[in-house]
Design a protein around this nucleic acid. Structure first.
Lengths: 353, 353
DNA sequence: AGCGCGGTTGATACCGGTGTCCGCCCTGCT
DNA sequence: AGCAGGGCGGACACCGGTATCAACCGCGCT
C-alpha cells in the first residue's frame, strides 16, 4: 500500500480522531505539497491567502498539530524551555513555575525543570549536558544560579537562549528580568522609619545572593529618607532559612542596645526572628517589630501575621517566559512591570515609649 | 561533499567536542553500520561481545549520546515524563518533583510539569492534548487528579503509561503508589488517645480528596485502640487551606462541649487551627492540642511548633519514578516502602485536669 | 561436499517535519 | 508579442535515530 494512496480505513481513523493527522494528511486533503503546509505553519509570507485559508481549514477540520519532535529534529532545537534553579524555597519555585507556565500557555512549548546545586564543581557541565541533551530552546535562570557568570558564559558559548531573573540587571537587557529588590527594601525601611523606629536591625540573606545586598541597600535608603540609619553592628547574616533567621535574630536581640525593629531578608528568616523574640521573652509587635520579604504563605500563617514586602514572583515568571518566547518571535515589545509592594499585617508597630 | 566521506574538519570538530557525535560518526569510527550501533544503544542481545566492546569504546571516547528527539521520533514516543497535579500546596509539589527527579536521575528522561484544574470541564482533553503533543512516555498523577477515573480511563485509552499516587490502591498495583494515609491517621489518633484525650475534633480535607477519608478512618482506628471515639459533631470539613482550617477550628471550638484535641487533615489547616485557638483565647497545648499532617516547613515555623505526621513525599516521588521507568525496562522489582511517621513537637500535650 | 540453520550484520525505508532549489505562472515593461 | 522578475508551489535531500528484512557467516548434519 503506497503512502500516496492511503487505504480508506486510514482516513476513517483520521475523521474519528483515532489517528493523529500528519503534515502529509493535511497536504493531501488540501491538495498541496507538504512544504506548503509547512509554510503555513511557520507563517511564511509567501503563500497566497487563498491557499493559506484552504490549508488552515483542513488543519482546523482535523485538529492537526505538528509533531514537536519531528519539528525539533529538523530545526535542531526542541520546543522545551528549562527552568534552572537552586533557590531552596518551595513557594518561590512553584510560583515561578506557575508564572512561566502562564507565559508559555498556548505557545506549544513545555516546561522542564532542573534544580541544581550551585556549590557543585560540575555545575556548568551538568547544566550544559541538560541543555544539549534535550536541545532546549531556552532556559530561565533564577537566583542564585542566575547570578553565576560562568553559567551565563557557557550559555552564550553554546548559543542557548536564556533569561536571567535577578535583583539587578546582570546582563544585557534582553537577557534580564529585574526583580527590583532594592525597591522592596526601600519600602521596608520607609515603613519602619515612619513608624518611628530609629534603632534598626537587618538580617541579610547569604552573601552570594545579590538580593541580599539589594534589599539591604534599599532598606538603608528608605531609612535615610527619614533620618534613620542602619548601624553595622545591627546587621547579621543569615542563609534565607528559618533556622538561620532564628539564630541571627537571637544575636541581634542579645545586643546591649537591641534594635526595636528588624527587617529580615525573607519571610522564612522573619519567622525565625519571631521564634527568637519569643524565646527572648519579647512580644511582637509591642517590644519588637519584624518585617519580612516575599509574602509567601508562611507570612500569614505565623503569629503575629507578618508585615512583609510582596514580591510578584509569579508575574516575574510570566515576564521571563514572555521575554524568552519573544526572542523567538522576534518580538520586541517591552513587558510591563510589577513592583514589590508593602503588605502591612500585625508584626510591625510604633516602638514603645 | 558526500556524507560517507566527511571532510577532515568534521572529525576535528568531533575530537575537540565542538560538534556532537551522531550515530553515523560512531558507526563510521567503529567500522560498523549505524544499525549495529543502534543495537548496542538499545541493549539488543544479538551483538557479538567483541563488536559491542568496540562500539562502546568509540561511544565513550567521543562522549556520544543519542538524540532523544530523533530517537523519540522513531520510537513514536518522547523521553519525557509528565507530572500532572492539582494539589495547591507548593511544598508538596516541590517535594514530589524532587522525588521524581531523584528517581529519574541518570535515566535520560526529563520531567515536564503540568498543573491542572480538576474542576475544569476540559480537564480530560487538556491532559490528553498535553500528553499527545509531546508524546509523553508516561505521567505521574498526584492527588486529587490521581483519583479521577475519567482521567485514568483516557490514559488507558491512549496507551500512555501512568502511575497514580493516592491514598489507597485506586488502580492495578502496577499503576498505584499508595501513600498510606490511613496509617498516618492512625498514628495521630494513637498519639492523642495515649495522651489521654477523649473528646476529639477532626478537620477533614475536601471530600474529593481520598486522603481526607483515609486520614479520618485511620484516626478513628487509632482512637479506638484506646477506647476513644470521634463523634460526628466534632468533624468539620475544610479545604486543605489555612483559611478553611481556621474557620473549621473556630466552629469546633464554639461547641458547647469543645474538643480538647484537634487533628487537622494537613499542616496548613492545623496552622489555621492555631490561629483560631488564639482568637478563642485558648493556649496550645495547655487548653487545646493540635496535630497536623505532612510535616512541611510550616509545621516547625508556627508557634507552638506542630506535632504532625510526616509524609515521605519525596520518597513517594522517587518510588513513582522508579515504577514508571520500571515499566519500560520490564523491571519488576518491588520498591521498598516508607510509612508516615509521628513527629512530636510542642502543639500536643495531655489534657488539663 | 552440500545443505540447513541460528546468530550477526547491514541496506534501505521510514518516523514527521524543514531547507534548498528549481520551475511554474502571472504580471508589467519595452 | 517577448522577456525579466517576483510570488508561489513542489521535488528532493536531510535531521538522527529505529524497524524490516534479507544476506552473510560458520557450524553441524546427512
Amino acid at each position: 500500500m503506497s503512502s500516496r494512496t492511503p487505504k480508506p480505513s486510514d482516513d476513517e481513523a483520521l475523521q474519528s480522531g483515532r489517528r493523529r493527522a500528519t503534515i502529509n494528511d493535511v497536504a493531501r486533503l488540501a491538495g498541496v505539497s507538504k512544504k506548503t503546509v509547512s509554510r503555513v505553519i511557520n507563517r511564511s509570507p509567501s503563500v497566497r491567502p487563498e491557499t493559506r485559508e484552504k490549508i488552515e481549514a483542513v488543519i482546523a477540520r482535523y485538529g492537526y498539530a505538528p509533531d514537536p519532535q519531528a519539528r525539533g529534529l529538523a530545526f535542531r532545537r526542541s520546543f522545551l524551555i528549562g527552568l534552572i534553579y537552586d533557590n531552596p524555597n518551595p513557594q518561590y519555585v512553584v510560583n515561578m513555575q506557575l508564572g512561566l507556565l502562564d507565559g508559555m500557555k498556548g505557545s506549544g512549548f513545555e516546561l522542564v525543570v532542573h534544580p541544581c546545586d550551585r556549590g557543585s564543581t560540575t555545575l556548568v557541565p551538568d547544566i550544559r549536558a541538560f541543555i544539549e541533551r534535550q536541545k532546549l530552546f531556552g532556559v530561565v535562570l533564577t537566583p542564585s544560579v542566575s547570578e553565576d557568570e560562568a553559567v551565563a558564559e557557557m550559555l552564550r558559548e553554546i548559543g542557548c537562549e536564556y533569561v536571567r531573573v535577578a535583583s539587578i540587571a546582570v546582563d544585557a537587557e534582553a537577557h534580564s528580568i529585574v526583580t527590583r529588590d532594592r525597591h522592596g527594601g526601600l519600602l521596608a525601611g520607609r515603613h519602619l522609619a515612619e513608624l518611628g523606629h530609629r534603632r534598626l536591625g537587618f538580617i541579610s540573606g547569604p552573601d552570594r545572593f545579590r538580593s541580599s545586598h539589594e534589599r539591604r541597600g534599599g532598606f538603608e535608603e528608605g531609612l535615610k529618607e527619614h533620618g534613620a540609619t542602619l548601624s553595622a553592628d545591627c546587621v547579621a547574616e543569615g542563609a534565607y532559612t528559618f533556622e538561620s533567621g532564628m539564630e541571627a535574630a537571637a544575636r541581634l536581640l542579645a545586643l546591649k542596645d537591641r534594635p526595636t525593629a528588624i527587617f529580615a531578608g525573607n519571610d522564612e528568616m522573619a519567622a525565625g526572628a519571631l521564634h527568637a523574640a519569643r524565646q527572648a521573652g519579647l512580644s511582637v509587635p509591642e517590644d519588637l517589630s519584624v518585617i519580612g520579604f516575599d509574602d509567601f504563605q508562611i507570612a500569614s500563617r505565623v503569629w503575629p501575621p507578618l508585615t512583609t514586602i510582596r514580591a510578584p514572583t509569579r508575574e516575574i515568571g510570566r515576564l521571563a517566559a514572555d521575554r524568552l518566547l519573544g526572542v523567538m518571535e522576534g518580538d520586541k515589545r517591552d513587558p510591563e512591570w510589577r513592583m514589590p509592594s508593602l503588605v502591612v499585617r500585625g508584626s510591625t508597630a510604633a516602638p514603645k515609649g
